[in-house]
Design a binder for these strands. Structure first.
Lengths: 336, 336
DNA sequence: ATGAAAGCGCTAACAA
DNA sequence: TTGTTAGCGCTTTCAT
């Protein structure tokens, strides 16, 4: 491996000059910089991140802590984060807690604190008290994306308002018999988000003088499969079923749509379904939903951290990102 | 930040002893090791990865190069890789080429070669000649997951056989009018995989003496939305349409199912649909498919690299992972 | 079983 | 504008 010394020796200049030239620092004659650049390329020199990290205290890497990679929301956020980091020349290190609790604290103690990263982005999820504390006490910039985590700043959509918008869309269509497909639960994925959406659902119903039936609060676990099974039960009785279902996520909405199709229930004629997310499948499925843009959220958070790294001072920022009602074919007037 | 020297000083031992004790190396009295461990924990000592990487030449990180994070296959592979790495105490660095070609070569030259990682896992995708060469000449262990990349070893399912199994399932059900929903195209995602599946489709049809209609080779781009639109056209004419569609991926199969539903075509009564993947939505959708396990492929590849890192010699290994026909409700006998 | 000391390859004062 | 020189915090011989 050719090192900075090789380049310096080849040109008869000092390593400091090579370093400055290559990093675009001022105080290097343009002619010198050109020669250095050329020679470095010719020798195939690539700086060692370990060495520069050790010397400068900057790793040029950012970490993302998440409960699972292979879920729509998280992978989309990741994509947004990555785009920004790439542009800034930063590398992305992913810490997934991946289902089993095994190695959870190893992640915390070995990696997150290991000076491997300059900043950390935490995806909304349930943390133990100890873990939360570890995050709070991080010495470098950090932020939560998605739901709130106590004592840590965060960015995300206004979950309560998003849920309210969805429910009010149904109410405006004349629905009064509205069920809720809830998320959260088996995954450690989150606590705050499902709770806020649920609470907003209840509050909105109450604000409009509509009653809530506890047996119409179905558990969908944020997944297609669980939601489908729940919906099959929820919609089983033609004589007594909701005319609309507010789903706390699109994936659960797909489960409800599927259940309706299996039961021969017409959408939106007999049943309206609305979700939250605007998942990739929502448009082709004709699903009405509240759009959020996870990639934007990730990019926004990454920008924030990158900015703080640059200016070395905390940023002022509005914590909430926009959402938008997208009307498609899965919602319509309440049946008479 | 407390360093190894602080720990050593606190105990009145040398840094070498602390290092040995903490890394579980032999030649340390158990009593000493215990004292070191305790003190290190008390002082909140966490070794710096940059320093140890610089000194030892090991970064304890593995890279994954992929065209996009937020797609089913890739995020699932990532999950499998991550699980293994976590267990081995390795960190995961993700290099996404993410759509736009911007910064592509920066990824190659700045990150991959930057001694930041001990090994690289490349997700099947289209690489420029120069990029392919860069990968081939990597000095550390590397492997491709998914489709083949010329000149680099790889692991994945036997795509040709998987496609053949799918098509023969349809043929065994009596279908002769079989269409193909093809993937590949707009994403740089892949070249080899869609081609192999297409070729196997053609070969299998020919082997069974069945004709192929070029207008029944539809382009689905590996996505739900594109496939749905293609299928809408493919299935438009009740008097002249296929009785079965072989889809090169589940997401495209969902598009075909959706199109069939919109057109009022009964599945599997009038139309059989089969996919490849066993996507999370396949079971609740009742989709017959060829199951593959991306997480397993990722884990397998990661294990391989980890093993080589450990033993310092290339591993012998079977390049192909299993696939399995999963019969569900979307395929049935050809209509008479 | 432990310690001393020489780097690993860079960056960042400080000089010149 | 360029060079000199300390480190950054570990690992790893080589001694002891």
């Amino acid at each position: 491996m050719t090192s900075i010394d090789d380049v310096a020796a080849a040109l008869g200049v000092s390593t400091a000059t090579v370093s400055r030239a290559l990093r675009g620092l001022p105080g290097v004659a343009e002619e010198t910089r050109a020669r250095v650049t050329t020679t470095a390329k010719r020798l195939g020199y690539v700086p060692s991140s370990a060495a520069s990290g050790l010397a400068s205290g900057r790793t040029m890497a950012m970490g993302v802590l998440l409960p699972a990679i292979d879920r729509w929301y998280f992978s989309a956020v990741l994509e947004g984060v990555d785009r920004r980091l790439r542009a800034a020349g930063y590398d992305l290190i992913v810490f997934s807690l991946g289902g089993d609790g095994v190695n959870r604290d190893r992640v915390f103690h070995r990696s997150i604190l290991r000076k491997r990263i300059d900043a950390l982005l935490v995806m909304c999820m349930h943390l133990t008290d100890e873990e939360r504390e570890a995050v709070q006490q991080l010495e470098y910039p950090h932020i939560v994306v998605g739901g709130a985590v106590e004592g840590v700043r965060h960015v995300g959509i206004d979950d309560a308002q998003a849920a309210r918008d969805a429910v009010e869309h149904l109410i405006a269509l004349g629905h009064t018999r509205i069920a809720h497909m809830r998320g959260g639960g088996s995954f450690d994925i989150d606590f705050e988000v499902p709770r806020q959406r649920e609470q907003a659902f209840r509050q909105t119903m109450a604000d409009h003088g509509l009653g809530i039936r506890e047996d119409w609060s179905a558990f969908g676990d944020f997944t297609f499969a669980t939601s489908r099974v729940s919906a099959l039960a929820l919609l089983a009785d033609p004589a007594d079923r909701p005319t609309a279902v507010f789903c706390s996520s699109d994936e659960m909405a797909f489960g409800v749509l599927r259940a309706a199709a299996e039961l021969g229930i017409g959408v939106p004629g007999e049943l309206s379904v609305i979700g939250i997310d605007d998942h990739e499948f929502a448009a082709p499925m004709g699903l009405t939903t509240i759009r959020q843009d996870p990639a934007d959220q990730g990019a926004y958070a990454a920008d924030l951290l990158l900015g703080e790294l640059l200016r070395n001072e905390p940023a002022e920022y509005p914590p909430s990102r926009p959402h938008l009602l997208v009307e498609r074919a899965s919602t319509g007037p309440a049946p008479v």
